[in-house]
């Protein structure tokens, strides 16, 4: 059984409880992108502008858990996900996987961790190399990591395709011969080829039709059950996250503002930003009179180059108080697994 869960992974897989060692631990991860300066400002020795995509994110993920990471476009959630799979080198901070430093410069360790941590990409149309057949693309992964003998590769590729709901006979086709949903399944099969433990799904269903979204989400949930996977599920749509996640983290302008179990966050959003997001989920039964009293968020998010002082949400927050303009609220535990960074709640 190639797909068998490693023994060390077996216990407590379905639990949300973070008891025991966490699988993934991110501490104060910061990713700043220096912006290219014009020659004039460089000659004037002006300090360079910096885009603060991720500005101190800490997140602990337990084995077998699915954490949803939501936020507007440009809030840094994709950047954070790419730091976890090491597509980006964080400016500072620490990322540990089973207690091991992910940001190591040891080539052998990096290679081993690459096998454990995989990513599913957003755009099924650009995430597959158009010049390679499905068989060649999946086979290449197996060859590079020497995961199985050369003569067993076709069988293993077929197995992977069937695992994601495609047929082994489709291996001879090129990506252009598949639909968006099928391509996303191929992308999933490619990530599974290395037998990963932790998968960052970066907007994995955002580009798909709603009916296909449900299929792919069900596939991911089934794979999680069968293979004992742990997911970080990045999305800008809370509704999608609700179905798949154990916990939901809400990100705003490079920081996590709230973390809650998925079972409570939709009924009891704490942070004003989360409230607005939850309110934005389309409902079939919302009668005209039954409108929430929370005002919709107004305006665009501030620029991540010039982040507001204090709480970064205060310019758009309907509850903003004087303190919000000067003091940045830390994430504070509210009990019941609820954590929020807002001056409206005690501890901040």
């Amino acid at each position: 059984m190639r797909f068998a869960v490693e023994p060390s992974e077996g216990a407590g897989r379905n639990g949300v409880e973070a008891a025991g060692t966490p699988l993934v631990e991110a501490r104060d991860v910061v990713k700043h992108f220096p912006l290219t300066q014009g020659i004039v400002s460089r000659l004037q020795r002006r300090p360079g502008e910096v885009l603060k995509a991720v500005d101190g994110v800490s997140l602990v993920i337990a084995p077998g858990e699915t954490v949803g990471l939501v936020g507007e476009s440009g809030c840094g959630k994709t950047t954070f996900g790419r730091c976890l799979v090491r597509l980006y080198e964080p400016t500072s901070g620490e990322i540990r996987f089973r207690g091991e430093d992910v940001l190591t410069h040891d080539a052998a360790t990096t290679r081993r961790l690459r096998r454990s941590i995989q990513m599913i990409f957003q755009d099924p149309y650009s995430s597959l190399n158009p010049r390679k057949t499905v068989k060649a693309a999946l086979g290449e992964v197996l060859t590079v990591h020497r995961l199985c003998p050369e003569n067993e590769i076709p069988a293993r590729v077929g197995e992977l395709l069937e695992r994601v709901g495609l047929s082994a006979a489709m291996g001879d086709r090129y990506p252009r011969q598949f639909s968006g949903g099928q391509r996303q399944r191929i992308g999933i099969a490619r990530a599974l080829a290395v037998d990963p433990v932790f998968i960052v799904a970066d907007e994995a269903v955002s580009a798909l039709d709603v009916s296909i979204q449900a299929q792919v989400i069900n596939l991911l949930m089934r794979l999680q059950e069968e293979m004992g996977l742990t997911f970080l599920f990045i999305a800008h749509n809370l509704g999608v996250v609700r179905h798949i996640s154990n916990r939901v983290a809400v990100m705003y302008l490079g920081k996590i503002v709230e973390i809650q179990p998925a079972s409570t966050i939709f009924d009891e959003p704490l942070h004003p930003y989360t409230k607005a997001l939850v309110r934005a989920i389309p409902k079939l039964d919302s009668a005209l009179g039954a409108r929430d009293t929370v005002a919709a968020i107004e305006g665009d998010p501030p620029s991540p180059i010039d982040i507001p002082t204090g709480c970064r949400f205060h310019p758009r927050c309907p509850y903003a108080m004087p303190i919000c303009q000067t003091v940045e609220p830390p994430l504070a535990d509210q009990g019941g697994g609820q954590t929020v960074a807002c001056h409206l709640y005690p501890g901040s």
């Binding site: 790419r82 597509l87 096998r115 941590i117 990409f121 957003q122 190399n129 990591h145």
Partner: peptide
Amino acid sequence: NAEYVLAAKTLGFGDARIIFGHVLPN
């Protein structure tokens, strides 16, 4: 910056393999 190149990186492919097998043919 195409996602198939990023995917090749996360899969731990070497630079030469990515350049000759994934970037150049496209």
